[in-house]
Design a binder for these strands. Structure first.
Lengths: 203, 203
DNA sequence: TATAATCATGAGTGGCGACTCACTTTGTCA
DNA sequence: TGACAAAGTGAGTCGCCACTCATGATTATA
């Protein structure tokens, strides 16, 4: 977790080699932003041409940067996961450890409700590649939050990491479809959290 | 004879008119069965040709019975919902009212894990048509189960129908993707149920 | 059985979307 | 500034898939 932070770059291109021209870098960012917006609105089935149009570049440019639609999706996923990882690191260190897990889950579900991308990508089979490492980081981070919550006596000891992740993905999935509003989301999460809490932690 | 009577059919065609030839009826059932199987395995994005192949008929025959892929999906959905509705009626009358809701949810999630159709269809926008009435029935049934569970003191009074449905759809969604096994499903549901229970109902 | 419907067939159509490539434009560096 | 490599362009290719229709097969009725 915590990722050790790859300096100031937001590029997402890691480990690579040569410097990338100025216009290329700019277009790459535009494409990523456009893709994130388009996929967030219309889901991952939106066409690559729409992404290109939104970014203000030609379709070929998109495929020059991301040789495959999959690759584009994975790049987005990597960014999202990185940001989540950052939030998580903060929560693990700074906040009340008992409630940190709940805060994180709530925040992630809120994001999912807004961005269809997250959920669509979770559904894809192609989470195997480079993304896998990010997923593992996320998983490890959630585990940390879970363990601390349990040590603080907030979450029941017999709750396992797998169940937390299952609940998280499930609620994220659900948050998209039925037109959840803020209130419904809050109330639904409250039920799940109640199920996770120890008897003593119920106020 | 004739008049008003489509006999004892499970056809799903309701309110319609004329009697349907013998081979036609048989093929219609075959197509429905094949479609249910194919969509259950591969999701709703599976091609109509694959359905036709599995059913042992030509592609044209499928479209003769169901003018649109949507129509085919809706027919399946109607069947599934009908069956769920039946189960629900039984649970509402015969079983321990306190636990009936939990039983139903568990059963539906189990189905969802096996049949991608349910979930895929819930995600579709086109649930507006004839299916809507079936959805309403389902919703009403769940409400009955919820109210009875609350009257029996098993489920907290501040839980609303919307949250139960939100949890139900969410868990159904999640049950597909991450390769849930039986144990994980049981444990995850246990957490949700714990969140729904009154303090007194915790054993 | 003869006849007239209904029904089945499957090659064909149209459209869409991922991806390519020959060519043009642009940035960079001497 | 000139020259070259890196990057951008977008019409075109290819495959997939929902859906059609002229033709031939089956079933129900006289």
């Amino acid at each position: 977790m915590t990722t050790t932070n790859p300096s100031a770059g937001e590029t997402g291109e890691s480990g690579g080699a040569r410097p990338l021209r100025a216009d290329a870098r700019r277009n790459r960012e535009r494409i990523l932003a456009a893709a994130e917006a388009v996929f967030a609105e219309k889901g991952v089935s939106a066409s690559t041409e729409e992404v290109a149009a939104r970014a203000g570049v030609a379709i070929g440019t998109v495929f020059k940067h991301f040789p495959t639609k999959q690759a584009l999706l994975q790049a987005i996923m990597k960014g999202l996961l990185g940001r989540l990882d950052g939030e998580m690191a903060v929560l693990a260190d700074d906040d009340d450890p008992g409630e940190a897990l709940f805060t994180f889950v709530a925040r992630m579900v809120e994001q999912a409700a807004r961005k269809r991308t997250v959920v669509g990508l979770l559904a894809e089979t192609g989470v195997d590649l480079q993304v896998a490492s990010s997923v593992r980081m996320l998983r490890d981070g959630i585990e940390t939050l879970l363990v601390r919550s349990q040590e603080a006596g907030t979450v029941r000891d017999d709750v396992r990491l797998d169940e937390v992740i299952a609940l998280l993905t499930g609620i994220c999935q659900g948050a998209l479809h039925a037109g959840w509003d803020d209130d419904l989301r809050r109330r639904t999460l409250a039920i799940v959290f109640a199920g996770l809490r120890t008897p003593e932690a119920h106020r």
